[in-house]
Design a protein around this nucleic acid. Structure first.
Lengths: 338, 338
DNA sequence: TAAGTTTGCTTAATCGTTTAAGCATACATT
DNA sequence: AATGTATGCTTAAACGATTAAGCAAACTTA
């Protein structure tokens, strides 16, 4: 790259010190009592030379990088991608740049991503923590790194988070199915102790119980691995499920599970919703194309993303209060629901 | 955040100067002839205090941030997301961090993203340039900013790029359709002069001509706008197309066009491939779920992403040679192809 | 023994900003 | 005339690392 224009260059050309130039370009000309003509001269020269301050130098001096670290499961997944997009947008609006890293739900990767981001002096973090990361998180809390959880959180740790009303989401979905005459509703969910998933299970179970259907509870747990693996595991589980035919509705508790399940339903040529009502999670174009279109629980991604950024920026600015935000799901009613 | 451990702290504790500490921690102990016992002491203390060098200070001194700027159309789009993922992975492997920005195909946003990234002193850029950005790009060339185009490029500008063999991709797809008995093949493409799209048009036209079908050429151009708009525009165009029934095959030249087109095909209840053969672009789960599954032209995203990073890092390290990489498409044959 | 070499360390400049502190000069006040 | 106070600027330290240059002391060599 060709040599950059520095404060010094402007100062030299204007015949003043760099301090004055800095004051003027940072809008401190009143406070620092800079002469009218000098202000004009400096502004003119800065524009002429197309001066851009070096953010690195600025960061070193100020201790702030105006950078946010975003740690998610996998940026190539549309759910993560969309939320990243909203986060990026809101961050830019507030003058922040975003660095993204994907964990693959692996706590080692998660940990080293955090290190590498702190190492780069990010001002704060927004993250969907991988399981088994609570030790790392406790360190962040102790070191007072500003951060916000998104989508998930750890129950024992008091930290900011923005999450879905997971319990209500499945509770309502189950009630919808029951209201449409379904009784044998199976929940397909990841095998994990993560709170957000446990909430979804609980919402399902309570809804079943509240309708006197506690004996009909069926939960199928799929290990959380690569997308490819999840698809295979889901298919196997579905094969078993379809074998005993008792079931008349399926509720998926996560996006990739929904897609995987739909592959299986399609393979078995199950008639939806006649034989089986289906409710998916998170939304996907595949839901539109399925015959019939799939009803689903929708997360307000834009709200979650922007809210997370706002909370984080508050924290970065020194607000101490811990914020727990629960956003409301939306139920997208479609034919598949029964 | 609590106070960080500095070189100075280690130096003080070890009773030596910061220079020695820096030498040791950077593995220069041999070259700089540091005493054995001092080396050990420094390493021990650094480990004890869990020292992490401040990258900002390092960057200011070295002029290198070990950061790559990635500018794409829209990170929430799976195509962009996947490529971003591969880029992120390869960059991390080479010690680089990635900053991502989305242009929405808007040249103003594109330009300000570049500014903001340079402003943050990225070492180089990987980008899918928006149309109408050639002036901005020429400046980058003049200022010798290392960069690599991905997916697209500007013909008048000699710069590094990694792109698909766009011409061959459509040429072969058309031949496939013709070999399967289709004669009235319509190409659905974005209305743009961008080279990569023009190459796809050319591949289509030449294939038609080479098979004596130049009189059957039909190209429908869809303005490139928001995804929502594209869907509406495509639907309108398809309505017209289906009205005159002459067509027996459709070739989509981009991913969003394919999805949009499939919505229309579905709406019109066209029988694929009996009434109409269909070939999509880029791949998508929707292609799997469509009845029948949609054949498509697949881009080797991993190869494109990693290759782009490698080329960029070479450039950052000072290699002057301009690299043009054309990666090979893959044709995924499915029932929809005829 | 004098000169040269090796060893092991320190000093201080540097990267490009920001900003506290200080220094003239001009003007106002008594 | 002496003092106070705006006004308008400069100087230099600081951020946290890297690294060229230099300085002693110990050891070789002729």
């Amino acid at each position: 790259m060709t040599k950059k224009v520095l404060l010094k260059d402007i100062a030299k050309k204007a015949g003043v010190s760099t301090a004055l130039v800095s004051y003027v370009l940072n809008g401190l000309e009143k406070e620092k009592r800079v002469g009218r003509d000098v202000v004009e001269k400096i502004n003119k020269i800065a524009k002429e030379l197309n001066y851009q301050p070096n953010q690195i130098a600025r960061s070193l001096r100020s201790g702030k990088t105006k950078t946010i670290g975003l740690i998610i499961a996998d940026i190539s997944n549309p759910f993560s991608g969309q939320i990243a997009r909203f986060i990026e947008g809101e961050a830019a609006r507030l003058g922040y740049t975003v660095i993204i890293g994907s964990t693959d739900e692996n706590s080692t990767k998660f940990s080293s991503l955090i290190d590498s981001m702190l190492y780069r002096q990010v001002d704060g973090l927004i993250m969907a923590p991988a399981e088994g990361s609570s030790q790392k998180i406790k360190k962040l809390v102790k070191e007072q790194v500003p951060f916000v959880f998104i989508d998930r959180y750890f129950p024992g740790i008091s930290a900011n988070h923005v999450v879905l009303d997971n319990y209500e989401a499945t509770y309502n979905a189950v009630n919808y199915l029951i209201a449409h005459g379904r009784k044998n509703i199976c929940l397909i969910i990841y095998k994990t102790l993560a709170v957000h998933m446990q909430q979804r299970i609980l919402g399902y179970k309570h809804a079943m119980k509240d309708n006197g259907l506690e004996d009909n509870i069926i939960v199928k747990e799929i290990p959380r691995r690569s997308y490819f693996q999840v698809k295979a595991d889901t298919e196997k589980n579905m094969d078993e499920l379809f074998a005993d035919k008792k079931m008349d509705a399926l509720l998926f508790a996560a996006n990739a599970l929904s897609i995987s399940g739909l592959y299986a339903i399609r393979k078995h040529k199950i008639k939806v919703p006649d034989e089986l009502a289906v409710i998916g999670f998170d939304g996907h174009e595949v839901f539109d194309f399925f015959e019939p279109p799939i009803a689903y629980i929708k997360q307000p991604l834009e709200e979650m993303g922007t809210e997370a950024v706002r909370i984080l920026v508050e924290q970065i600015k020194g607000v101490k209060k811990t914020v727990h935000t629960e956003v409301k799901h939306q139920f997208i009613s479609r034919e598949s629901g029964g």
